[in-house]
Amino acid sequence: MRIAIIAAGLAVAAGTASAQGLPQLDPTTYPPQLVWLAISFVLLYLMMSRIALPRVRQVLEDRDRRIDGNLRKAEALKADAEAAAAAYEQAMAAARASAQEVLREARSKAVAEAAARHAELGKKLEGEVAAAEARIAEAKREAIAGIRDVAIEVSSSVVARLMGDGVKPAAVAKAVDQTLKERT
């Protein structure tokens, strides 16, 4: 494609040139072109090598240095952050362990307290049971004693109804006592 265009362009140029002469082949134009080519190219070379290229190189180097510095700084900060995270983890682990310790202590203390209170309660309840039993025994004894009086009275009045007066209370009491002794 490119070759074709060049060929076509050159063909046209050659065709026209044969009539008028190609301007590029006129030697009288060579000296001024060479003179100004030399002037402008040397000027450009001096501008580039003395001013432009050192400036660009400096800019690029500065930027590279800056980027490197920033990367190094970022790496240092990352290391710091990682150290801080590790320290935090460690502190967390220690705190968790001490919390566990406190918890265990509290639990064992509570268990001991509960056991002590349980024992105390048991003792108190035992005392109360004993007191209640004593009261019951007392009440029983009193009731039994009451039964003796009632029995003597009932027996006295039954005997008096059957046999009239003249019953000796002492004899009735003795009989009742004996009967009670036999029954209980």
Binding site: T28, T29, P31, P32, Q33, V35, W36, L37, I39, S40, F41, L43, L44, M47
Partner: peptide
């Protein structure tokens, strides 16, 4: 002949 020609002008412009 060191005349400044149109070619020379555009060389300077490029520079």
């Amino acid at each position: 002949d060191a005349s400044l020609t149109n070619a020379g002008v555009f060389m300077l412009i490029a520079t």
